[in-house]
């Protein structure tokens, strides 16, 4: 039985049936039993996804406990990691995620640590901008000019003397940049639909198993 459940064919047929139901439900409304069925399927999906959090807990526990058992390099950090994970998990389970103790950890520990890591994004933005704006060829020169125009157009002091840069930057953002952006988004949306069709019809099953014999 487990072999059938794990087979590529079973998954493909299941995906086909569920996708067909979802597509039909998108177009046909007002059939109460059908609406109820789709609501139930939707709830199953949410519950399955939530249950997957348990998989995450199991994955981390196994990997870190293995490291502690083998006393791999930095194993004491793994003890810290597992202890904090289970402490937070138990605290949330016993008291609820809205309790003051749980919220204290979230607001005073998790959020500041998260913000510290997030702030690094600005450092790396500057770092990659320096690399991107190196004028190595004609295309890079255009990129650099566009960046320079945007930069000067955004300086308030320059706007005191002239609106030329601000107007040029606004025009560039509203006309060519928005046009290209829309083209990219339309193309992307179409690509998403096409992937949907591939998956629906079972043409693309790369999420179940490899189709390739080599790139």
């Amino acid at each position: 039985m487990s072999n059938i459940l794990r087979s590529k064919e079973f998954t493909t047929v299941l995906v086909f049936i569920l996708s067909t139901l979802y597509v039909l439900h998108y177009f046909i409304q007002g059939v109460e039993p059908f609406d109820n069925l789709m609501l139930t399927i939707g709830n199953w999906a949410i519950i399955s996804s939530a249950a997957a959090a348990g998989l995450g807990l199991a994955n981390l526990s196994i990997i870190h406990v293995n490291k502690i058992r083998k006393k791999e390099s930095g194993w004491y950090w793994d003890i810290w990691m597992v202890s904090v994970m289970f402490f937070t998990f138990l605290l949330g389970s016993i008291t609820s995620s809205q309790s003051s103790a749980y919220q204290w950890i979230y607001v005073n520990v998790y959020q500041p640590l998260g913000t510290s890591i997030f702030s690094l994004a600005y450092l790396w933005m500057c770092s990659v901008a320096v690399v991107a704006f190196r004028v190595k060829n004609r295309d890079a020169a255009f990129l650099m000019l566009g960046g320079l125009l945007s930069l000067i157009g955004n300086i308030p002091m320059v706007q005191v003397y002239t609106n030329v840069f601000f107007d040029a930057k606004t025009w560039a953002l509203n006309i060519p940049v928005r046009g290209v952006g829309s083209a990219l988004r339309i193309s992307l949306a179409l690509g998403l639909v096409l992937v949907g069709i591939r998956t629906w019809l079972g043409i693309d099953t790369s999420y179940v198993a490899l189709e390739s014999e080599g790139g």
């Binding site: 591939r198 043409i203 693309d204 790369s206 189709e211 390739s212």
Partner: peptide, 9 residues
């Protein structure tokens, strides 16, 4: 997926 598998479909 198409590039890797080269599957006609």
């Amino acid at each position: 997926g198409a590039q890797i598998s080269k599957d006609p479909g």
